[in-house]
Amino acid sequence: MSGVGGARAYPGPVLPLLVPAPVVLPEAGWTARAAAHQRRMDVWLDPHQQRRRTGVAHPVLDFLFTYYSETPGRLRRWHPGVGVVLTGAAATERASWPFHAEVEVRDAAGERVRGVGLDVPAFLAKRRTSVGWIEGLLRGTAGRPGQFGCFGMHEWAMLYRPEDGEVRHPLPLRLGQAGTDAVVESHRVQCSHIDAFRFFTRAAEPRNTLRPTRDTQQQLEQPGCLHATMDLYKWAYKLSPAVPGELLADCFALAADVRELDMRASPYDLTGHGYAPVAVETPEGKAEYGAAQRAFADRGAVLRDRLLAVCRELLAPA
């Protein structure tokens, strides 16, 4: 059987015709997108893997590969996302990938062709609860106004009057320990994100105006939060392979940019690593931080909507 992009007849049974009709991608088009995705991701992945081989730690960028758990191999692997079928001989290998299946569809000319696409029933059998939770979190976050008055104090609270074992990074402090403590004591600490709050020192916890927990995450997360914006990358890979590779890469790129601001606005002195500080203890630094925070929230809103569209397509009644 022939079809779009030289689609071949795959051996063995296939799923019935998909409803609604999926997007059908010919081999030449989707393989070019896959190669472009790998080139884009290698801008980050190649230096990271070189650092790992030489045992060189990076105080800013390692976070993207340690705190977040997606592997370089999976990050390089492009997926078309839910509702898309790949045709052509190169798609054959993907039929054996997790959550993929051979399907029969109609191409743009109305002819039946066979290809490989996301096996939505199999995906939801394993991940329906997770998809529903992520959808609820993203929807709730999108429906709240952004809060832009925190000035990155979460990073300072992680270093406030530390006890043994509470300092996570062996880096110098711009203002020293006493100066760092004084900044925390002169600011209102209002962190809404559980995965930032859980790293507060014991002395800093009572200073926070909120008590975020995992159970209240869906109720407290808001789109101005840098960590909520970085976490769009986490939700993208948690939804893989239902998320298009381009969306995953967009979320990763945003997380990398936000991580840089997060650390530049922290108490650490990173000038030796090429990062100029955002001195949030000053009016000028607060203005710089707030402007960047709003710009990241705007970028995040677009990506959040795209992730929500993936969730809703997955959860839509068959």
Score class of each variant (00 low, 15 high):
109 A>K: 06
269 D>P: 03
184 V>F: 01
180 T>R: 06
46 D>S: 09
202 R>C: 00
45 L>A: 01
87 T>C: 13
61 L>H: 08
268 Y>A: 05
265 A>M: 10
178 A>W: 06
205 E>W: 11
136 G>N: 14
2 S>D: 13
209 T>A: 15
147 Q>R: 14
140 G>L: 15
129 T>S: 15
261 L>Y: 01
184 V>N: 00
202 R>M: 06
8 R>T: 13
91 A>Y: 03
11 P>A: 11
3 G>F: 07
135 E>P: 00
136 G>T: 06
137 L>M: 11
165 G>Y: 12
116 V>C: 05
46 D>N: 09
31 T>I: 04
188 R>V: 15
232 L>V: 02
183 V>C: 09
31 T>Q: 10
230 M>R: 07
306 R>P: 04
2 S>C: 02
284 E>K: 01
166 E>K: 06
173 L>W: 03
130 S>H: 11
50 Q>Y: 01
121 P>R: 07
10 Y>H: 07
35 A>E: 14
240 S>D: 13
41 M>S: 01
142 A>H: 13
194 I>A: 12
72 P>L: 09
302 V>E: 15
133 W>V: 11
59 P>Y: 07
268 Y>E: 07
161 R>T: 06
192 S>R: 15
68 Y>P: 00
130 S>Y: 09
66 T>Q: 12
308 L>Y: 00
67 Y>A: 12
248 L>N: 00
263 M>K: 15
87 T>F: 05
112 R>C: 05
207 R>N: 10
203 A>H: 10
310 V>Y: 04
170 P>D: 13
60 V>A: 03
127 R>S: 03
141 T>N: 08
196 A>T: 15
132 G>Y: 08
303 L>A: 08
118 L>V: 10
1 M>T: 13
293 Q>R: 11
143 G>K: 05
283 P>I: 08
235 W>G: 02
126 K>E: 14
90 A>Q: 12
145 P>R: 15
54 T>E: 11
178 A>P: 06
150 C>Q: 13
123 F>K: 03
35 A>I: 10
82 V>C: 10
265 A>G: 15
66 T>K: 04
143 G>E: 15
244 P>V: 14
198 R>M: 14
195 D>I: 06
12 G>R: 12
109 A>L: 12
222 Q>E: 15
32 A>Y: 02
318 A>K: 11
121 P>L: 12
95 A>N: 05
305 D>R: 14
259 R>W: 07
275 Y>W: 12
225 C>W: 04
19 V>M: 03
151 F>S: 01
245 G>T: 10
150 C>H: 10
61 L>N: 03
94 R>P: 00
277 P>D: 10
203 A>C: 11
14 V>A: 11
59 P>H: 06
193 H>D: 09
316 A>E: 15
59 P>T: 04
172 P>V: 03
120 V>L: 05
318 A>Y: 02
171 L>M: 08
53 R>T: 08
287 A>H: 01
307 L>C: 00
75 L>S: 00
36 A>S: 01
39 R>F: 05
228 A>G: 14
159 L>Y: 11
9 A>T: 11
16 P>C: 09
231 D>C: 04
303 L>Y: 02
103 V>K: 08
122 A>E: 14
15 L>C: 06
144 R>N: 12
212 P>A: 02
67 Y>P: 02
202 R>G: 04
191 C>L: 05
308 L>E: 04
94 R>T: 05
209 T>C: 07
217 Q>M: 14
215 D>F: 08
251 C>Q: 02
318 A>S: 03
196 A>I: 06
9 A>P: 02
52 R>H: 00
